[in-house]
Design a protein around this nucleic acid. Structure first.
Lengths: 203, 203
DNA sequence: ATATTTGTTAACCGAATGGTTAAACCATAT
DNA sequence: ATATGGTTTAACCATTCGGTTAACAAATAT
């Protein structure tokens, strides 16, 4: 069987497509450019993925499959609430350094195509907030944290961790630092953000 | 002079272009679609703005000109620090409701074109963090707030206010609410976010 | 009244783009 | 060795897209 060769090609294509789509988005990406990056003929893209749309969806699902476990660190990890916040904040930054374009890509394409999320919802492993809500209620009852809606807390955690990467070009300009200094600031956030959140909610 | 008529057309074009560009981005927008929305012939777009790129830049600058005063509410308003945080948080939500696609548009296009920010920097009215830094230092000295880098605080304020709009499709799915419920949550944030921030930094 | 400038349009153009086709290639089974 | 099946390519196709042209319309100046 020629399985090995074809498997490789299929993966090469997906990797090339990931890079191009995540950097340029669905509209900005060119099939030819993906083919070039994968070092194959453009017709092969269609042989394996039929259309730009289907190739894009494969990339998108694959991207979300990487992101979901990260989100589950906040939502479904069973450690203590404060620990969880610290762990997530710390690990998310490492994650984004590995996949710099990924979160922005997911958010951006979801904005252009909001109904797309329905397809993801059906997948197993789609993050659910249920456990997190119980945990927050519990911490409020036990007077560990002030009363706060779990949804609001979750949004805050996400905002503080994700936004600085998405808005990097704007923020570097506004706070008037170069990319190097901005990265230092981001590094500091590994600890600072968790403390900021915990400070805001602890009694 | 045919000034009135031409003025109208030029503004019609810009408004149509704003809508299309902000919803679909530079790559997704079509000149024909902009012409249709402005109810004019496609050649007129080029008559007034010469190229798609220049039309886009006009839209982008105009969008940023709307956003800048909002940012200056945090950075250069001379009210008390806590007041400022409350005022910004409250007013930013109203702003985004009026211009739902704007912040995302600016951030997104800056990501695809980071050098673009240089052009904006030269414009007067470009927000500067200098005053805000002094204010934060002052508040720390006076033991009103805990020690925190002004840059970090600014990033936090921006994150908590801007991100929930940018990531709306993702967040509604993750916290499992419909659009109506999500808007209620956003409305609550007008007060909640300011309190969250102040709680996190006050002594 | 008429010439001149400004605004507007229909028709057109060339390049780029997503997608297709038909032939070649190549590993394996017979 | 050769037939078979999947794999890969060069060439091609139809359409879309940004942009141009040339002619027409309308306003203004003389």
């Amino acid at each position: 069987m020629a399985k090995e060769k074809s498997d490789n090609t299929e993966i090469e294509i997906l990797n090339a497509a990931k890079e191009i789509f995540q950097q340029k988005g669905m509209d900005g990406a060119r099939m030819q450019e993906i083919a070039d990056k994968a070092k194959i003929n453009k017709a092969l893209l269609h042989y394996y993925y039929r259309s730009k749309q289907l190739l894009f969806e494969a990339v998108f699902k694959s991207a979300f499959a990487l992101l979901a476990p990260q989100l589950n660190k906040v939502l479904n990890d069973d450690s203590d609430l404060f620990d969880k916040i610290r762990k997530f904040t710390d690990s998310y930054i490492s994650f984004v350094i590995k996949h710099p374009y990924l979160p922005n890509f997911v958010i951006q394409e979801l904005n252009k195509n909001p109904e797309f999320i329905q397809k993801l919802r059906l997948q197993e492993n789609f993050p659910s907030i249920t456990t997190f809500k119980l945990q927050v209620s519990d911490a409020i009852e036990k007077k560990i944290i002030i009363p706060i809606q779990a949804e609001q807390l979750f949004i805050n955690i996400m905002s503080l961790n994700v936004f600085p990467f998405i808005a990097e070009p704007l923020l570097t300009a506004l706070i008037n630092v170069d990319k190097k200094k901005y990265n230092e600031i981001i590094q500091n956030r590994k600890i600072d953000v968790a403390n900021f959140i915990i400070n805001a909610i602890k009694i």
